[in-house]
Design a protein around this nucleic acid. Structure first.
Lengths: 345, 345
DNA sequence: CTGAAAGCGCTTACAG
DNA sequence: CTGAAAGCGCTTACAG
């Protein structure tokens, strides 16, 4: 029978070890000013009584917090899995524990998760904002007195620590690569134009095309949900046009994988008939057939940098605001290997 | 300038609204015994002062908890992503918030995460145990006075709520399917024999073979890490044998995807030269080429059932122990479509 | 190292 | 509905 025994407290430990509560408190906090023998006695009592330190009570009294909230938009996206691994690896060294929240890219969910986390006294928040954050949300984030760092996507008008990638550069090297392969009609598929991550890619896409004197054709720029399904649906639109592109630059790998599947469904072979480039370099991109040319964004590194930033910010609210922009790298694979000069008149 | 203002308390709200702290407390907890006008006044003050309810303090006083710890073994496995979505969707309705811990299938990490969660006063834990839990860990879990439900994998000798799939049945229908396709030499690749999830699959694998009078050949049963890489490495071993199998039953989809890649690397075409079957039915399995025959285990449903169980258990520690075993379903795709009678003498 | 007191922000229990 | 008191399990600050 499991009897509902009440919690063993530090008081109990102190009594059992024959020391004062203050001394016991010092010991559980790892103070070095305590005589070795006393420490041993207390540690023995802790073990004997099965004492579990109540970090919540401790945090409350000392007005501190050992929790960090991590808010992402999509847990099914392997980019975020990697991101979370990076966050986790870095945070565990510091003794923090993480609350996880998933917004599914919805402003309302993000709002609720923020509230819940604040009510639980998180010491800091790592936020990957939803694409279309409302004005109210932005106002709210501004006023927050909890340390916050933004990751992956940036919110306009918000002075705040940030870690992200140079999406513009990433998009541009992708587009340049496609142009070098002979493509001049290059589609941009996926994502939501409300997010900074989209706008920056769009900028890079434009830069790349303009430098080669290619005009932007908005009819082959298609937004979509950031999922495989999103990519599949979008590519069907593209294929049904009178003058389909010869290459597709995708918002990310998830979309690209969907695009390639959509091409196959339409009996178009990705990598041969149409070149495809992704973004993120998720594990799967190298294992898919054809393997996917993509932009490595170092998701895990972004996560660990975000964790570092929030940790620093929690230690010192007044330090200078940091912006870390990682430089992406193109990873060339089979989905874009063919030159297609012959298709151009 | 962000000034470090101290937290607005319920006391402040009460004073501002001209009511007592008790009344304010009743209102934030949604009591219905309060006059409408009083409530309105207080809610207005809350908004005006920017009061944030301190659920941690409330939980502490009332000896309750609104947090649930979720411990998984691998966040990069899409099975667990789906599982987490299920947990999350169900838990958010109840107002709980989740701590996430990832063990990377290591006993020591699991131990540390458990400690950290207990110190943070989680109200309950959903645990997907590591494969090779030590005796100490099992002893510890037994003594835990926090409600716990196990999911996905079961620990021996532990009376505890559990949600899982009938892995034995899943393995058996897979093997039967392969036998019907004409295979008699079927390999089993991946996983760790220390886990219940492996043992049960092994049981199903054996059952399937025995019923068709096929002898077990241990040389084509290969354990591996539960990753793509694990599958890739293992399949190389298999191929280098004098008498390689004609079909491979994989521990899960992640392993199967690695196996298929390993086959390709060796110029063997999965689905044509060798049949491959996975387990889990992760999204990717339908999008890969060839699409992967697999066993649908309803990961999201497992997650939401686990969330239900922990919720029930937190409400009533003394209710009967529940074991929910979901029945898996075979999803037939191209990786196993070919009959291969001709290859058998 | 001890000991007594106060306090973190709530809820509880109760008399009015 | 109010008001005063006690307590959840700690830490803080201080006199000894």
């Amino acid at each position: 029978m499991k009897t509902k025994r009440s919690r063993v407290t530090l008081q109990d430990v102190a009594k059992h070890a024959g020391v004062s509560r203050s001394t016991a408190s010092l010991i559980v906090r790892g103070s070095s000013t305590i005589a070795v023998n006393t420490r041993r006695k207390v540690l023995a009592s802790i073990r004997e009584l099965g004492y579990v330190y109540d970090r919540v009570a401790a945090n409350m009294r000392s007005q501190s917090s050992s929790t960090v909230g991590v808010i992402i938009t999509d847990i099914a996206n392997p980019f975020f899995s990697e991101f979370l691994v990076g966050v986790h690896r870095t945070l565990e060294e510091t003794g923090y524990i993480e609350f996880l929240g998933t917004t599914f890219d919805l402003d309302t969910k993000q709002d609720r998760i923020l509230s819940t986390m604040l009510e639980h006294r998180v010491g800091g928040i790592i936020l990957c904002p939803v694409s279309n954050s409302s004005a109210e949300t932005i106002e709210r984030l501004k006023k927050l007195d909890v340390p916050i760092v933004h990751a992956v996507r940036e919110l306009p008008k918000l002075q705040c620590d940030y870690v992200g990638i140079d999406y513009t550069a990433g998009a541009q090297i992708s587009v340049n690569h496609l142009i070098q392969k002979g493509h001049r009609r290059i589609s941009f598929i996926g994502g939501s134009s409300g997010s900074s991550a989209w706008k920056e890619r769009m900028q890079g896409y434009e830069n790349g095309l303009k430098k080669s004197g290619i005009e932007i054709d908005e009819s082959i720029i298609i937004e979509s949900p950031v999922t495989r399904e999103g990519g599949m649906v979008a590519v069907h639109h593209i294929l049904s046009q009178q003058n389909p592109p010869t290459a597709i630059f995708c918002y990310n790998d998830l979309v690209a994988l969907g695009v390639m599947q959509g091409l196959r469904d339409a009996k178009v072979t990705p990598g041969e008939d149409i070149a495809v480039v992704g973004f993120d370099n998720v594990q799967e991109s190298s294992l898919y057939t054809p393997s996917l040319t993509t932009v490595n964004v170092f998701a895990r590194l972004i996560g660990s940098q975000a964790a570092n930033l929030i940790h620093q910010r929690m230690l010192d609210q007044d330090r200078d605001i940091q912006r870390i922009i990682l430089q992406p790298e193109l990873v060339t694979r089979r989905s874009s290997e063919n030159y297609i000069r012959e298709k151009i008149l």
